[in-house]
Nucleic acid binder design. Structure first.
Lengths: 254, 254
DNA sequence: CGAATGCGTTGCATATCCTGCAACGCTCAT
DNA sequence: ATGAGCGTTGCAGGATATGCAACGCATTCG
């Protein structure tokens, strides 16, 4: 809606691909160099871009710090964290917490596996939305039209033979997940990694987040992992209770 | 330099403090509501802000994802990571990697302590610049005028009695750090936590990053921690070598 | 060694695009 | 019912962003 701001913001994803010089930015924006320069300068003043020694621009530190703050005032996260840690202490596997927000699902917390073989993932990273167990739970709860629209719009990359192949299959899977109230990903993203996940609900019953336990099958088989399901669900329910119940504990910020 | 973009970007730190509604944003920007609305809309389209169910705005997911990408293409980080992990495996303590960028020092990587007592810190979080060992190393390497200017501008919060009290003391400390080539923080930030840190240098000898080992003194005393100094320095030197030497291994992106 | 190319940068005139206003619709509380 | 408070819209005026052309500076090539 605001052309100038629109252009300025478009620079950021562009720089996320890697550093770029003024000319490249101007070209990809389709504007004159002087225009790009002024936009970059403004971004620079705010610390969103950084000018490295070779004069090229890349994303700046303030952006990282801001994102950090953004995550820190997600209240689900605060409440969930100790539960995730406790679950990790019980089973030793990687525990994730994820939320859905406007066509993306992303991890907002993680407790690392205590086994030497760890899976790759990072807080803040958008998850493989068509296969991840947490994504299924979050999308399954969307209003039907929105869910359908989103499913149609997605790509369905075949990470493995067991990846969700297309929108129809995905919608069917979501329906199933919706009914059973939990989800799995059995080798749909990484051949050897399995997950079980459960939803965290707000006071109105809507799914506000999802948590999962993941483990490579060199550590435990899928069947063994599934035996953790009741525990995972109980943990998720405990978080739900605390989240919707508004525990009076810890109300530091007004 | 660009008023519109300037205003739009100012909204983000504002929202980082917590969700806000349209009126609040307009007030704090000192603009008309309709203006704020248009800016917020533009930010929304790009996913930088999110409109929660109560209509208030907060920082959006794209911001988090972007910051993630920003960190992932810092090459020091890639190179350093395995070294940090190895160091952690040796000593068991928390290992940090930090960089300086325009008046801020922030952690860009972290390997968690394997002891039950862990220190609080988060990747992406700006560090306590006046006391942290890594910050001392990074600032000590700045050109003298810049270092002095920065030191004058900083606040010197007294986290503990051992915190750096003022600019003069800080500059003296930086001089010392500069000469000895390593730094410590002995209870200057958290009473019970000590750190030893060493610099990572680029091909031209300039400090590009700094790494540290931190441990609470309930686990090891400051003296014991200092015995790790040679190992920390060796690790930092190894990273420096790899970083400046341009190892031919792994050149995926052109 | 000098010319030429490529880059970031500046000042300026044009008109585009942003701004603030005022009025509207809506929800919620009185 | 009535009013207050909030987000939203269309519009006219003018501040503000834009592209141009020219400059400085480095690096490259003749």
């Amino acid at each position: 809606m605001s052309q100038t701001v629109d252009r300025a913001l478009s620079i950021l994803p562009l720089l996320a691909e890697g550093p770029a010089d003024l000319g490249q930015v101007a070209d990809r924006l389709g504007v004159h160099k002087s225009t790009a320069l002024r936009l970059l300068r403004t971004l620079h003043e705010h610390g969103f871009v950084y000018r490295q020694s070779d004069q090229r621009y890349r994303l700046g530190a303030r952006l990282i710090a801001l994102a950090q703050e953004a995550m820190e005032n997600l209240d689900v996260r605060d409440i969930a964290h100790p539960h995730l840690v406790r679950l990790n202490e019980h089973c030793g596997h990687t525990v994730h917490l994820a939320v859905y927000e406007e066509n993306e699902v992303l991890y907002i917390d993680k407790v690392e596996s205590r086994y030497p073989v760890r899976m790759y993932s990072r807080i803040g990273k958008p998850v493989a939305i068509t296969v991840a167990a947490v994504a299924k739970l979050l999308l399954a709860d969307l209003p039907e039209p929105e869910r359908r629209a989103l499913a149609e719009k997605l790509d369905y990359p075949l990470y493995t033979p067991r990846s969700t192949p297309n929108a129809a299959a995905f919608l069917r899977e979501l329906e199933k997940v919706r009914e059973q109230g939990w989800a799995t990903d059995l080798g749909g993203h990484e051949e050897s990694i399995n997950c079980v996940a459960a939803p965290i609900r707000g006071a109105d019953g809507r799914v506000v987040a999802a948590m999962s336990v993941s483990a490579p099958n060199v550590v435990v088989t899928a069947d063994e992992l599934l035996t953790l399901l009741p525990l995972v669900r109980r943990t998720a329910d405990a978080i739900s209770g605390e989240y919707s119940g508004r525990t009076p504990v810890k109300e530091v910020n007004a």
